[in-house]
Each structure stands twice: as C-alpha cells, then as structure tokens.
Nucleic acid binder design. Structure first.
Lengths: 246, 246
DNA sequence: CGACACCTTGAAGAGGTTCAAGAAATGTGG
DNA sequence: CCACATTTCTTGAACCTCTTCAAGGTGTCG
C-alpha cells in the first residue's frame, strides 16, 4: 500500500512529511507527488518534549501547530481560582495548538505525559501553503472541525452521563485510537493518572478508581495500576447505551 | 420528528456583506474595499428559519456555513438512546455549521428559538475565496479556533463547576454577548426554556429553576419567567470565582 | 376560555464528593 | 542495590449536591 521509503543517509536526517510513517494520520490523502513534496516545507523543525514539561503554555505566543510524532500529551486549562480541567489527551499523529489561532496566544497548556517528539509547523507557513494547495486547505479545515465535533462529544459526556458511562466511553475511545495506530484492541497502558482522567471526565480521582474497581469486579476489565485489559468490550458498549437503566 | 428544512425562495433584496450592519461581527476587519466587494460573492442567498424549525439537522449533507442575521439558535446533539445535549446558543453575527466540515455531514441540529434569518455561505466558495484573500482565510481559521476555545470553556464549566457557578457563568456570558450587540448590560430575555438551559449546563430543569429562585432571593437577579434583570453583576462574578468557599 | 407548554417548589433519594487511612508503585540518594 | 521519601492508587464512611418524583401555578395561543 505505502510506497517504500527512499533510503536516506543517516547524516542528513531530513525532516520530511513525504517520508513520515504517520503521514496518513496527519496529512491529507491523495496528494500529487509534487504537492506532497511541498508539504515538506511545512515542518520547520522537530522538537523533543520531556515528560512532565510543557510544549506550550497558556498565554504564550502562538506561532505554530504541532503534529505529535511520538509520545502522549494532555491539554488543560487552569483558572485563577485554582480550577483545572483536562480538555483532551493527544497521541501520535494528532495535531495540537489549534486553540492558539484565535488570539495569537495559546489558551491552554500542552503537557507531555511521556517523553515526546513533535513536528513544529509554523502557522503562517501553513496558511501560505494552504492557499496554494487546496487539499491541504481543506485538510486544515477538517482537522479543526473534527476537534469541534470531538468536543461536542465531550460536552455530551460531561453533561449527561453518569460516572460508569463516562469511564466506559473514555476507555473505548482510547483503545479505538490506539488500535488505529496498530496497538491492541483490548489492552492498553494509561499514560495519565487517575486524577487526570477524573479531570477530563468531570469526576474525582476516587470516583475513577472506584469505577475501575467496579468494572473489574464485574469482569469487564482487568486493572493493574495503569495496565488495563478490556475483557468485555460489549459490556462497555452496553453501559454507554443504557442510560439510567432503572 | 425532525422537521425538514424547506427551501426558501430567493429574496429579492440584494445580499451584500459590504453593506451589512453585522459586518464587524462576522467578517474580517481591515479589508481593502476591493476585497470587501469580493466578499459579497460569499453569500449565495439568505434563508428564513421559522421558530422551532431546524436550519440543518444531524446527518444532513453539509454544503454551507451560516451567518446569523437575526434570531437566535440552539445547536444540539442527540444520541440513539434518547440523550440530548445542547452544545451552544447562537445569536446574530455568529457562524454556525462548522461541525459539518469534517464529514461532509452535519453532526448536530441547529434549531431556531425564534424566527430567524441567516446568510447562506457555500463552503466551497468560502474555501475558494479564502485562497485568494488571506485576511478571509485567517478569519475563517480564527472563527473555528474561537469555537474550540469556547468549547474548552464549556468543558471547564461542565467538568468542575457547581450549579450556581454554572448558571452565573451562563448569565454573564449571555448578557455580555448581548451587550456587544447593543442590548442592555443588565436586562435580558431568555430565548430558551429552563430545560434547554439545563441541557446546556448539564443540569436538570428543576435545578435551573431553583438556582434562579435562589439568586432572586439573594437579590442578585430579578426573574419573571424569561425576563431576567441582573441586579448585582459583581455577585455573579464572585460566585464564579469562589469555588466551594467553605 | 380551555388546553398545553412551561415554570416553581417540596420532599425523598441517589450518585458522587470529601475526608481519612493505608497500600502499592516509583523515584532518589547513599 | 537497598532504604526511604514521594507520588499514586484503593477503599471505607459520612456528607452534600443535584436528581427524581410529584403537585400545583403561571403564561400563552389557538
């Protein structure tokens, strides 16, 4: 399916989208070879982010979008009064930084939950190039629209689901995205703490822990710390689709 | 159950952004007169939407974004199992339909809460024009980014606020947007039911009602059905900024 | 004017939180 | 490499907020 990558001399590790094995995840499909070549202009550089440190922080000047090559991020917003909300977890092939466009400043923190590497795509370059490559333009629009739709889903979750439904939704979503990246459909390693999961799901960490335990008791999952094995995917789906089955 | 959108006859009035008094709200600022003229190509037509009917519905083919000229909308998503979540309320000058870009199908319903009129902006035309007018391109990006940031705020609200904080946030946000449109800073008419407010805020309608009553008792607002007068804006702000001040 | 949708209020109940204690894993320095 | 400190996770019990159920009131529109 994918054409063989041209062998490159190790000395000149060129940053090249046309060559990246995550291409299908973050770039538009069906580009002509010449367009694809131009996309390589997009990525200015790569940047490594150590676990626990921020790729960008709230208030920082917005200059670029980032495509995650490796690693795992959370994005979160914090208010003056100490409230804190995880707005998403992002993995390889996903794009972060979209929040910064509107005010030329980032509106949230992006923190690496494990050592990570990202492709830095200066936004002015993205805009310039997408004026010339309609497929890229449309792709950028779709990425932003996808984020909007994803957040609609989170709003539904936060606004109308009970704890078990939230956690089931969360697990199925995670495992589905991991599966799309070649990982197991049933086994996963959580990269975030219970507290971070709770923040994302609008629950306290104790509730997350208890709900995990309940799922385990019922034989739906196996949980050993951050290692989770899903034993009964259908049960998780049923939990989501039977609201308040009283 | 779902009302089909009835195609409206083209209105005879000239559709012209360059001429619209909502221009500052939905178009980029600082355009050259010639660029501004070109923007008139954007709006294909206008469309009236009767109160209670849908501008577009979940699953419908996505073709255009809509700029609200007059009226008031809610957007909401419904799941198979009967869950329903209002994802936003939109008023004059705001853009709806962004959710449809990613899958070429709308992902939610947009329902008019009062008789409304919108400008229909075919999306392929938007893309074409924004390849030629960088200011428009950037504006489109900012609109989408703003929606993402707005939803982050809703996630914070749904994930970490108690009922009073949610309603206070909601009221301040509404009145602020109305004020930007020339309405009062302290008086507003709600266009939506308690149930719709509740759905948006992740609360039951009874809780919304009770919280309104509580605010009224405390002299923070005056509520007569859908007529709300804010007597103490600062108190609302304090409610938001003092989480669980126990 | 009557029907219907919408809103308010009360009382009981449930789900999630809070507080607390201890266990398990992880990291650090000697 | 081990001991110790720290972070993370689990579990219990009391509590609280919001929901649920129910009834009655208010407003609106044909």
């Amino acid at each position: 399916m994918r054409s063989r990558p041209v062998p490159m001399p190790l000395s000149s590790i060129k940053v090249a989208c046309s060559n990246c094995n995550l291409r299908e995840l973050c770039l538009p499909v069906g580009l002509s070879p010449s367009d694809l070549g131009r996309l390589d202009e997009l990525v200015a550089t790569r940047r490594k982010v150590k676990r626990g440190t921020a790729l960008f922080s709230n208030g920082e000047r917005f200059t670029a979008l980032y495509a995650i090559r490796t690693g795992f991020f959370k994005t979160c917003i914090a208010t003056e009064d100490g409230r804190d909300q995880v707005t998403g977890f992002q993995m390889a092939g996903e794009i972060i930084g979209l929040d910064g466009i509107v005010n030329d400043r980032h509106n949230c923190d992006a923190v690496a939950l494990e050592d990570a590497e990202v492709c830095v795509m200066p936004f002015d370059r993205i805009e310039e190039l997408s004026r010339q490559v309609p497929a890229l333009q449309n792709h950028v629009h779709k990425i932003m629209s996808r984020e909007i739709v994803r957040e609609h889903g989170v709003m539904l979750l936060l606004g109308s689901m009970r704890a078990e439904e939230r956690l089931a939704t969360f697990l199925l979503n995670l495992v589905q995205r991991l599966h799309a990246r070649g990982f197991s459909q049933s086994e996963l390693v959580l990269r975030m703490t219970r507290e971070e999961i709770g923040s994302y799901l609008g629950l306290k960490l104790e509730t997350v822990s208890r709900t995990f335990s309940k799922f385990a008791e019922e034989g739906i999952v196996e949980v050993r710390q951050r290692h989770v094995r899903i034993l009964d995917t259908e049960a998780l789906r049923r939990i989501i689709n039977s609201p308040t089955c009283s």
